[in-house]
Design a protein around this nucleic acid. Structure first.
Length: 480
DNA sequence: CGATGCTCCGATAACGGAGCATCGGTGCTTTATT
């Protein structure tokens, strides 16, 4: 059957979006693929469709439990029953059942951590998979080295023996991120599809102020005067709370979002935002992955992100409907120092490395260090991973190198902020692409007519309100 | 690094401020206690 017919049959679409067909054809020719497609451009179809011709299970490695649940639900909506999320939401009994019948599923979603469990590995050794998908593959680079080392371990596992083709999916990836993906997963001459990273409808603002107090003054006024929905990214949980309280008091429908909340609260807040019951979310970088809200009009950074890849991911959540959207980054002198501290604050130190080795030598469980509160759980896991790989001296050198790399990434971000040339051109260039054309209201340096944008946006907003009024009335009248 | 919070001091009551301490982002899994 032709691919187009399959598309029609299983998903009801009549034609492919840019990139989808090329990616799918490469997969069916058993080629590894790195596909960088903006969210909302049908990334998931790139593996969903092949699943129906392969007749072997497709394994999807996903970074977040909530993301897995969403994908499973989506597939079930399309009528697919042979789909499962193999993760810690399952009870012991359910898990045993799922593992026992694993090859019966068409789609198996799982986390890197679960994938590496021995019982899962043993089962997978006896199954022929049709395709392995690494969803949100930038997580390998973003998290693997110093946060979730299992992202590196899945790479080691893939490099052993026979394996089906691998499809790495992400919305945006810098040259370095792509290289990390390629190397970590040991991809063999992958077909790389890279959609244009530029988002011409997002105006790139940058406001330089004196200090924190000025930031807060500017922000409060700006948010009061302009329309949402919007995301305000801040650098700490505490600040998220403070801003959301201040905005609430100013009569703006706002909620804070960060990893300090439980999964249920986070789900609830996210849903309220998506449903239009909240105008602003004040969040740490915990917010955003997997949310697909089309009409986000603004993304504001109260302080700079740790690297350009994150910045791009975060502003990329604005204006997915194609309408004009505003990304504003606030900067005051010295912000980069705080950013540098945050991105390296949780790395193990040379002292930790020595202590770990010392305890090993004395045949004491190094996990002892956790009980004493000598280092965080994250730092311990990272240390634990690296020390199994190489000598203590190598680990020290590696951690040092990692910190320097992270400093450099902050400096690269700073350059984007401080440039006097076109910000968009710099940004796009960082992803190895050439800017085709500078749009209207391109960036702070090319010139943004803020007043105009504010005016038109507010008018649009009123129009929308009128619309919903009219349709509401109609509904009421129809009801009678 | 820098913002914020806490303690303590003087001096005879309350409270401002110096000085020191603490904290700062991302998520999976799973186990032993309440």
């Amino acid at each position: 059957m032709e691919l187009e017919q399959l598309l029609q049959k299983h998903f009801g679409y009549s034609s492919f979006r840019p990139g989808q067909k090329e990616v799918i054809e490469a997969i069916l020719e058993e080629q590894d693929v790195i596909a960088l497609l903006p969210t909302g451009m049908g990334k998931s179809l790139c593996y969903q469709l092949p699943a129906y011709t392969l007749e072997k299970p497709v394994l999807i490695v996903s970074p977040l439990l909530s993301l897995m649940q969403d994908q499973v639900e989506e597939l079930k909506r399309f009528g697919e029953k042979r789909v499962v999320a193999l993760n810690s939401f399952l009870t012991v009994t359910e898990k045993r059942y799922v593992l026992h019948y694993l090859e019966q599923y068409r789609f198996i979603f799982t986390s890197p951590e679960m994938l590496l469990q021995q019982q899962v590995q043993e089962k997978l050794a006896h199954i022929k998979l049709g395709l392995i998908v690494v969803d949100e593959a930038h997580c390998i680079s973003q998290w693997g080295f110093d946060f979730r080392p299992d992202y590196l371990r899945i790479g080691e596992w893939f490099s052993r023996g026979n394996r089906p083709p691998i499809l790495a999916l992400s919305a945006t990836a810098t040259k370095k991120v792509v290289q990390d993906i390629r190397e970590t997963l040991s991809l063999k001459a992958p077909f790389e599809f890279m959609y244009n990273v530029d988002r011409p409808n997002i105006h790139l603002g940058r406001i330089v102020v004196e200090d924190k107090a000025d930031k807060s003054k500017w922000l409060m006024q700006h948010i009061k005067e302009t329309a949402g929905p919007g995301i305000l990214y801040v650098s700490s949980r505490k600040r998220a709370q403070q801003y959301s309280e201040a905005l609430l008091q100013a009569g703006i429908r706002t909620a804070a979002y960060h990893a300090g909340y439980g999964a249920e609260d986070r789900q609830f807040i996210q849903q309220q935002f998506i449903d239009g019951e909240l105008d602003w979310i004040v969040a740490t970088n915990a917010f955003g992955m997997g949310i697909n809200k089309l009409d986000i009009r603004q993304v504001i950074h109260e302080s700079m992100p740790g690297n350009i890849a994150n910045y791009m991911q975060e502003i990329g959540r604005a204006g997915r409907d194609g309408h004009s959207a505003l990304a504003i980054l606030l900067y005051s002198d010295g912000d980069e120092e705080q950013a540098k501290f945050v991105v390296t604050g949780d790395l193990p130190t040379p002292h930790h490395v020595d202590r770990y080795q010392e305890l090993l030598n004395q045949q004491i469980q190094p996990a002892q260090m956790l009980k004493n509160g000598e280092l965080s759980e994250t730092a311990f896991r990272v240390l634990d991973y690296w020390i199994q790989q190489e000598s203590t001296e190598q680990v020290k050198a590696r951690l040092n190198h990692l910190a320097l790399e992270k400093y450099r990434a902050v400096d690269e971000m700073l350059k984007i902020i401080q440039t006097k040339d076109c910000i968009r051109e710099h940004l796009v260039g960082y992803f190895g692409q050439k800017l085709q054309k500078r749009p209207e209201n391109c960036c702070e340096n090319c010139g943004i007519h803020y007043d105009e944008i504010k005016k038109t946006r507010l008018q649009e907003d009123k129009k929308m309100e009128m619309m919903s009024w009219v349709s509401r009335l109609q509904q009421l009248l129809m009801g009678i």
